[in-house]
Every structure is written in C-alpha cells, then in structure tokens.
C-alpha cells in the first residue's frame, strides 16, 4: 500500500525533471569546481534542505496523530538567537548551541501542552506559531541582523564537495530512519498515532513518545533555521521560515503519511519535499513570476492528494466494473 502511495509523487517528480530538461537541456549537468559540486539539481537539494529537515521532524509528529505549526516560528527564533549572540561578540559554536537548546525548550513546551495537558496539537502549536514569531521580532528588535562569521556561514553555505546543508539534512534523515526502524521506536510511534488509549493500556509510554517527537521536531526546525540564516549570514525574524511549516506538512502528506496518524514513510517525505522544491525551481526556470508559483503548487498538491486518495481508487474501480454489474443487476436495468 505504501509503495503504491509513493507512485504518484514519483511520477510528479519525474514529470517535473523531464519538463526542466526540455526547457533547459543542461538541467541535469553536474560540474566540479574547486572541489565543489555544482548544478541545478544540487541547487534544488540545497534550497530544499531546510524543508527536508523540518519535514523529517514533522513526519514523526504527524505519525503520532499530531501536527506542529510552530516550526517556522522556531526556525526564526533559532536564527535570531544565533545571529544576535554572534553580533554581540559571541562565538559561533556557543551561538549554535544556545540556539538549539532554546529550540529544545520550545519543543518541550509544545510537547508539554500536547502530551501532558492533552491540548489538540493544531491549537497547542498555534500558540507558539503566533507568539514565537513575535518573540523573534522582539529579540531582533524588528531589525535584520547581519553577522560576519565564516564558521557560522558554513552551516548553510559551506561545501564538503556537496553543500553542507544537504549533508546535514540527509544525515538526519538516514539517522532517523535507522533509529526508528532498527529499534521499536517506529512501531511504537505508529501505535500511539493509531490508538493512543490502547497504546497506553498496553504499557506504551505514550506521553514520553509524544513529548519526544515534538522536541525532535523543534530541534530539526532549529537546525533548519540556522541553515536559513547562515546561508545569508543574517537573521530576518519576520520572513525566515515563513510558511515553511506548510511546505513541510505538504511534503509529509504528499509522501503518503496520513494526517490521521499511524503509518509513516520517511522516504515518502523526502520525495514530497523534493517535489515541492523542484516545482518551485521549475517555475522559476520557465520564467513565471515568483508569486504565481503558488498556483502550480496548489495544483500539484491537489493532483497528488487526489490520486493517492483511496476514494479515487474506489471510484476508478467502480467505473471499470460498472458495465458488468449493470447487466447483472435488475435494479439498475429497470431504472
């Protein structure tokens, strides 16, 4: 079932790549310059790295039947903290550690609201989504804070043959995949997502598991926020990570994980994030105004979701079947 769900996002991605090659024949070319790998596909991966990272965290949250709307705000906070600290003369390493520990605290807060107080995830995280960006603005006093730290710049703009941002995201993805599938964590997360009460009575530590995924999602968001701000060596509390939570949720859903919780697919999430990022890039290369990308995004999302919907499969099946049953069923024949 999961495999068939990945079919349509794969088709979408392939179609987008073909379209790109048709428009720009050099699209798939890669070249190495100063030991760095360059090319359009590398750019797509690099621009998509923060989304992939956040989407990985989001996948686990969604699998527990939750959602985290605050990741964009958390990303903005992480960038703001790091840049304010560095701008105040602090070292990059301390700045990163400081930012990430704050993110862990924010994740603990979200997790507390959801798992201990039992507040609906969408509302619980809406609190931080609204207040968090306000907090980031407060921190930067509404200014864009620029920093000059070559070490800090490495996170988002550095290269290790491939851009470091890609390597970080992929490493996290692989680590999470191994951690959840090689241990029983994945199964327990899914069990909690499908039936929290039954899991609790079976002795599953639901509260801890739910709490953990929110902390992890916030941590992912924090790293992504650092990537975003490091890439431009600046913190923009207003715009950094704006709508990235929506992109991440879309990536998760396109990847075949249901918002109703349960079975999840990290490979699907990666695919979903790539579809979204490739789409954005494609629209740029075709030369459509940036804001109009949204229309295409909407269409692709709807198309993939409709094609994945079990209901569509049913309808198609019925259509195929109906000629036979008409001849057999007296009712239909009479009507």
């Amino acid at each position: 079932m999961m495999r068939s769900r990945l079919l349509w996002p794969l088709v979408a991605l392939a179609a987008l790549l073909v379209l790109n090659v048709a428009v720009t024949p050099s699209f798939l070319e890669l070249r190495i310059q100063d030991g760095h790998l360059f090319g359009s596909t590398v750019d797509i991966l690099r621009n998509g790295a923060p989304t992939v990272l956040i989407a990985v965290g989001m996948t686990l949250v969604v699998a527990t039947r939750g959602i985290d709307l605050s990741v964009g705000a958390v990303a903005a906070i992480a960038g703001s903290i790091a840049c304010t600290y560095i701008a105040g003369g602090g070292s990059a390493v301390t700045a990163v550690l400081l930012a990430l520990s704050v993110c862990v605290l924010l994740g603990l807060w979200n997790g507390f609201l959801v798992s201990v107080l039992g507040i609906q995830p969408i509302i619980a995280t809406l609190v931080l989504m609204t207040a968090g960006r306000g907090g980031a603005m407060l921190l930067t006093e509404g200014q864009i804070i620029t920093v000059k730290s070559s070490l800090y710049r490495e996170i988002g703009a550095g290269f290790l043959i491939l851009p470091i941002a890609i390597l970080i995201s992929l490493a996290v993805l692989v680590a999470v995949a191994l951690l959840t599938r090689r241990t029983a964590l994945g199964m327990l997360i899914e069990a909690v997502g499908v039936n929290p009460m039954a899991s609790r009575l079976a002795g599953v530590h639901s509260r801890t598991i739910i709490w953990t995924v929110y902390v992890f999602a916030a941590l992912c968001a924090g790293v992504a926020g650092l990537m975003i701000s490091s890439n431009v060596s600046a913190a923009d509390a207003n715009n950094a990570g704006l709508w990235i939570e929506m992109d991440a949720i879309l990536a998760v859903v396109i990847g075949g994980t249901s918002l109703a919780g349960g079975r999840y697919s990290l490979a699907g999430t990666l695919l979903g994030a790539l579809v979204i990022q490739t789409l954005t890039t494609t629209v740029y290369t075709i030369g459509v105004p940036a804001n109009v990308t949204l229309v295409f995004k909407a269409l692709v999302v709807i198309a993939v979701c409709l094609l994945q919907s079990p209901r569509t499969a049913q309808l198609l099946q019925k259509r195929r079947k109906s000629p036979r049953s008409t001849s057999r069923s007296p009712e239909v024949a009479a009507g």
Binding site: I67, I122, M246, I249, L250, V253, S258, L259, A260, P289, N291, V292, T293, L294, V295, F296, K297, A298, L299, V301, I302, C305, L306, S309, P310, R311, T312
Partner: peptide, 22 residues
C-alpha cells in the same frame, strides 16, 4: 475524495494567493 480539510484548504490558500498575482 476524503482528503483532510487542512490539506485541501492549504492548497486552496496557495491557489487563491497565486491567482491574485496572476
């Protein structure tokens, strides 16, 4: 099609914003 309202209206949001700029 039994798609989550969250996702459908999110797509609706993108669509409407995109149409503005169109």
């Amino acid at each position: 099609f039994d798609v989550q309202p969250f996702i459908v209206t999110l797509a609706g949001m993108f669509l409407a914003r995109g149409l503005c700029f169109l």
